[in-house]
Design a protein around this nucleic acid. Structure first.
Ligand code: ZN
Ligand code: ZN
Ligand code: ZN
Ligand code: ZN
Lengths: 131, 131
DNA sequence: TGTAACTATGTAATAATATAACAATTAAAT
DNA sequence: ATTTAATTGTTATATTATTACATAGTTACA
């Protein structure tokens, strides 16, 4: 899906900036702590920005970790089709960009023929480093 | 994976029972409220039972909803390979049992060849009733 | 320009979800 | 019998997220 919003608001920029600087997913209250020097003092300011950034696909939420990661998948034109690999040892998270996988899942139909407009897939395992 | 545990403890039975009676995912504190008459008064009692039941595959956690649903997929011998369809309108949740899908995902390899031992997939859409 | 509608912000309070820590009890293994 | 592990009960606390309301900025356009 094409970006819905061209310009980010001040708080959205601040929050996105801190998330993009992190190689790994960040938790909301860790973000809050990090942006307090920039004037964002209360949870709603962070959560509002997070909500919007997720909506427009700039970041994704790792549901199993309650954490947020910047989208670095330049081909990830579809904010509604996300896949991640998560190392259960070091908690390293990577976004998976496999057009084969995304095609397969986007076209998946259940038995009752329900069509989905969105999915989120989280793979778990042990990464190379941790083996 | 075969069940790891044959017998459930008292609290595990109580918690499983209430979840199995619900057609839809239940939240931890709703479970807690419902089992207070049975003597489970505090969150840890519920969360411990939930943890164990998830571990042995009797229930699954719907991560995007922070809720727990009984496994009714008799072929779901793999507690570590879960897929759900979620209606974003009525919040109806169904476990998807497609051997094709589970085979595809279980065999999925990322670019670096990392092999996964577990995945969770959540599809979102509007169900038939809500259309 | 005025003003209405919408979007974003600031702030305090609170709700909802989950875990830590520790003592006591019960079940299983040797 | 002894000891090892699993389960339970309990209090307190940590973590994650939202409600509610007041204020300010921005956009559309009459
Ligand atoms: Zn992405
Ligand atoms: Zn690792
Ligand atoms: Zn199942
Ligand atoms: Zn529905």
């Amino acid at each position: 899906m094409a970006q819905k919003q061209e310009y980010l608001s001040k708080n959205q920029k601040i929050v996105l900036d801190i998330i993009e600087k992190s190689a790994q997913p960040m938790k909301a209250y860790s973000i809050l702590f990090n942006v307090q020097k920039k004037g964002l003092k209360a949870p709603p300011q962070v959560y509002r920005a997070l909500d919007k950034l997720v909506e427009i696909g700039k970041i994704h939420k790792i549901e199993s970790r309650n954490a947020f990661i910047a989208c670095r998948n330049s081909a990830c034109t579809i904010a509604n089709a996300t896949a991640f690999s998560i190392c259960e040892s070091c908690e390293d998270v990577k976004e998976i960009s496999s057009s084969k996988l995304s095609k397969y899942l986007s076209n998946f139909q259940d038995k009752e023929g329900m069509k989905y407009n969105k999915y989120n897939l989280e793979f778990f395992g042990i990464c190379k480093k941790c083996k």
